[in-house]
């Protein structure tokens, strides 16, 4: 059990150290989706070394979205976002 915990901690530490970007930011915006509009007051963005994206939007509702990122240049990441529910990319 102890070994498993140590392994989990090591993996977590490794994930942190390889993270490309992670932050929580206050601001304003909207998330339009087929269920209606969500006003955003805080966004959490995690872009990891494996080109995975996690986007959490908080405001009138809390929404978690996942996706991928393809390249970064001067702090700008090209991203593709899927919904958490069906894991499909809306077109």
């Amino acid at each position: 059990m102890k070994k498993l915990l140590v392994l989990a901690a090591a993996l977590a530490a490794s994930a942190l150290s390889f993270g490309q970007h992670a932050s929580t930011t206050d601001g304003s915006g909207t998330y339009q989706n087929p269920d209606g509009n969500v006003s955003i007051r805080r966004a959490t963005v995690i872009l990891n070394e494996n080109r995975q994206l996690q986007l959490t939007l908080e405001g009138s509702r809390r929404v978690s979205l996942f996706g991928t990122w393809s390249r970064s240049e001067n702090g700008r990441y090209e991203v593709s976002v899927k919904t958490a529910q069906n894991n499909s990319t809306p077109r």
Partner: peptide, 30 residues
């Protein structure tokens, strides 16, 4: 979403680093 489909859209402008409880604990610079 792709042109012609306006059902999906995220638009957000950040004003500052969060002053609330951090949702994500992974940012070494946060």
């Amino acid at each position: 979403s792709a042109e012609g489909n306006f059902r999906w859209n995220i638009s957000f402008v950040g004003t500052r680093e969060s002053t609330g409880n951090p949702t994500n604990p992974t940012n070494p610079t946060n």
